[in-house]
Amino acid sequence: MSQPTPADDATFERAWTIADTVPGWLTRDQARLLHDEAQALDPGAVALEIGSHQGRSTVVLAAALGRRGSRLVAMDPFVEGRLFGGATTRQKFERHVAQAGVAEYVELVPEYSTRARPGWSRPLDLLYIDGKHDYWTLSDDLRWAVHLPPGAAVLVHDAFSSIGVTLGLLRHVLFSRTLSYERRAGSLALFRVRPPRRADRVRMVAELPWWVRNVGIKVLLRLRLRPVARLVGHDSPYDPY
């Protein structure tokens, strides 16, 4: 992967200034990881984002891709209900993407990833998964990786934080022959389409104590024991991400 240039840095800073105003749980370090992986793709590449919500990560990815003449497929069903917002969330997504000036690089697919996957045939160059956080959906979303070339990035948000996501990764990546764990920025984990080495598997197992810590913090927050959570370094009313 090429090293970021001053122009890349400037592109990221502009994108993050806008993205940081969009509600969501993507941190600056995580946004930089997404941006750097996207800007390293060859011109004309296609990336897939599963789970766009209001567009926080979409803005970052599309800014990097658009500069390279590439495109982002943003896939989100915009489910109705208190947690997801349905049509209202879609309107906010479209407004945020337009305000960021990246709408021309984004192809919105308002569909469940699990429904779209069986009929998908287009090649992809990067996969970002931040959809439904249960074991079964994450397991299915990882199957999108068959459309990626060797060496491509698979980025998964809420890895080693969400129970469902982490169990899915342990089942389908830890013993995989085609995906290897590289590193993480907070709960955003970077995997690569390549045969894993023993060191890659060991590195992934080494993240499990951090996962146990995060699950414990979530329990404390549910029990309204935030002062206890502070003792392990979590001074926030929100789940670790």
Rank of each mutant, 00 (worst) to 15 (best):
V22W: 03
E111H: 10
W211S: 01
D76I: 01
L208G: 06
G66R: 14
L167C: 04
V146N: 09
D9Y: 02
H35S: 05
G55T: 05
D36P: 00
T11L: 14
A15T: 05
W136M: 13
T11H: 14
W120Q: 06
M204G: 11
V154M: 07
A199K: 15
D158V: 01
L34Y: 07
D239F: 12
V73N: 09
A47H: 06
D239N: 13
L61V: 00
A47N: 02
R68K: 15
Y181V: 00
V79A: 13
G216A: 14
P43L: 10
S176K: 03
D130I: 01
N214L: 06
L221S: 14
V73K: 06
R213I: 01
A62G: 12
A15L: 04
A74I: 02
A159W: 00
D140K: 07
R115S: 14
R71C: 04
G151I: 00
V173A: 15
S139H: 07
L208E: 10
R197G: 12
T5W: 09
P196I: 06
L167V: 08
P110E: 12
F12P: 03
A199Y: 09
R32F: 05
R82F: 13
G55A: 08
A206G: 09
A206H: 08
V146D: 14
Q54S: 13
A87C: 03
R117M: 04
P149E: 09
S162A: 10
Q3T: 11
T89G: 13
A15V: 01
V165Q: 02
L124H: 08
A145T: 04
